[in-house]
Nucleic acid binder design. Sequence first.
DNA 1: GGTAACATGTAAGCGGTTACATGATTAG
DNA 2: CTAATCATGTAACCGCTTACATGTTACC
Lengths: 194, 194
Amino acid sequence: MDNRDLKTASYVVLGMLSIGSRSGYEIRTSAVLSLKNFWGLSPVQIYPELKRLEDAGLIHGRDEPRGGRARRLFDVTPAGEQALTQWLRDLDDIGDFEWRDLGLLKLFFADALEPNEVLEHVAALRDRANGYVRTLDREIIPAGERTLERHGKRYPVVIAKFGREFHAWMADWCERLEADLAAESQPRSRRVAP
Amino acid sequence: MDNRDLKTASYVVLGMLSIGSRSGYEIRTSAVLSLKNFWGLSPVQIYPELKRLEDAGLIHGRDEPRGGRARRLFDVTPAGEQALTQWLRDLDDIGDFEWRDLGLLKLFFADALEPNEVLEHVAALRDRANGYVRTLDREIIPAGERTLERHGKRYPVVIAKFGREFHAWMADWCERLEADLAAESQPRSRRVAP
DNA sequence: GGTAACATGTAAGCGGTTACATGATTAG
DNA sequence: CTAATCATGTAACCGCTTACATGTTACC
C-alpha cells in the first residue's frame, strides 16, 4: 500500500493514535466525542482502517488482552508520524468549509411557513445551539483538557473552545433573529428612538 | 410513490422551485451558489429528482424550448406545496449541526507541527474565511436580494447574511488565535499590563 | 442476577461524487 | 470563429451509514 491510498478517515485514526488513544475502542469513543462536530467518523470504519494502517507499516499493534477480554493496542511508527505530518502540512488540501444542517436548510425555505412557525423554528435552532454549548462545557472541553494534561497536546482543547464559541455565537444570532421577527409581528411594542 | 420516499435532496429541489427557480439548470446554478455553504446538492442529482417529483405529482413540468435548445420548466403543484410545508414544519427532523472541515480537522492534530507551521495553517484558514466573506458580499447576498425583489422570498438573504456573519466571525477567531501564538513565540514583545 | 461499559467486528445497500457525454445559442 | 453560457443528461464506482453480531468484565 502506498501513502496515496490513505483516505481522510485513515489520517483521523492515525491522528487519534498520535494524540494519545491506544485501542480501536478508545478512538471510537473519543473521536465520536471530540470530532463529531466538525468531522464525522463512522465507528465502523475504525477497525478496518487500523488494519490498513498496520499493513502499511504506519502503526504497530500488539495484543494486550485484559483478562479474557481481547484488546489490541497500537503505536504510531516513525513512518506513521512522517505520513501524518506530511498530510498536516499540505495546506493546499484544506478544501472547503462545508456544513450540512437541516435546520438552516429548512430556514432557507421558511417563506412557505407562517411567521409564528418560523419563530418556533428559530427557537428550536437556538435550543439546539445552547445544547451544544452545554455538551462542550461538560464533556468535550474537559476531555480536551485531559488530553492536554496527559499527553501534552493542546490543539484538541483549542478546537473544542472554538466549537463552544461558535455555538454560543449561533445561539446569539438566533436570539437576534427572534427579536427582529417578534418586533415585526407586534409593531405596537416597537421602541422609539431616544 | 409515497411522500415517505422523498429524500432531503427531493425537498431541496422542491424548495428551490418554490422560491422561484423554473428549470433544472436554474436550480443547478442557484443551488450551488446559495446552498453550497450549508447543504451540498450534487448537480447530477437534480434531473433524476425532478423526474421523481413529477411522477409523484408534486411538480408539473412542460417543455418550453428556446429556439432549438431544449428546456423544461416546472411548477410546484398544490400537493407539492403541501409536501414541502409539511416537511418544513417537522422540527423533530432538524437533526444535528454537522460540519466537515479538513482545515479544522488538521488543526485538531496540529500538535505534530512546528509552531510556525501552525501559524501558517491558521493564516490559511483566515484567508479562506475572508474569501467566503467576499463571495457572499459579491454574489450570494445580491442573489438573495434578487430573490427577495423578484419573488418576495426573504429567507434566502437572511441565510446568506448569516453565512457572511459566520465567516467574518471565523476570520476574527483565526486572528485572535494568531495573535496568541505570535505572542507566545516572541515573549519579548509581550505588553505590560497598564 | 442484571445492566452498563469494555472490546471488536461483518454484511448489505444506496446515496452521492467523479467522470463522461451532447448539443444549441449568444456575445465578443 | 471561438469561448462562455444555456440546457440536460448517463454510468460506474465507492465510501459511508444502518443494522446486525459476539463475547467479557465490573458494578450495583
